[in-house]
């Protein structure tokens, strides 16, 4: 709701920023989650995808060809250390607008992936 030129109008937050000559400030988080998973990076990412698919109903979850899983606008990538290929690092990145889901996913993935996951 913005007041401008003596009138009150209901506009989207994006439109309000524009009309008030404000610029948006993007707050982003990237979290590293350590995971022990004796598979290749691609397989680990597939397992993350399968795991999230089984838990998050009603969310848009995509496994993209650039080795990324996206849950809504949250980006998940996998890398592994050269010394210990089983020690994986998941990188989760989200913006403040997706804070609740980002926080939930980082807590969930920290618990690891369930056994018997394809």
């Amino acid at each position: 709701l913005i007041m401008k030129d003596n009138s009150l109008r209901l506009v989207s937050p994006e439109q309000a920023l524009k009309e008030l000559d404000l610029t948006e400030h993007q707050l982003r988080f990237t979290c590293r989650v350590q995971l022990q998973d004796p598979h290749g990076d691609t397989d680990t990412l597939s397992r993350v995808y399968t795991h999230l698919k089984s838990i998050l109903k009603g969310y848009t979850i995509q496994h993209l060809p650039d080795s990324t899983v996206m849950v809504e606008s949250i980006v998940i990538k996998v890398s592994s250390s050269s010394e210990d290929p089983n020690a994986k690092v998941l990188l989760l990145s989200w913006s403040y607008q997706d804070e609740d889901l980002g926080s939930f996913l980082s807590t969930l993935l920290r618990k690891g992936l369930p056994h018997g996951l394809c």
């Binding site: 610029t23 400030h25 993007q26 707050l27 988080f29 990237t30 979290c31 350590q34």
Partner: peptide
């Protein structure tokens, strides 16, 4: 940065929340 802030941390949720709230 002028138009953005990026917090990069290990999965330390209590710390991330403190930093988030300080930025906000």
């Amino acid at each position: 940065e002028e138009d953005g802030t990026h917090i990069v941390c290990d999965n330390n949720e209590p710390l991330r929340i403190v930093l988030r709230d300080l930025v906000l």
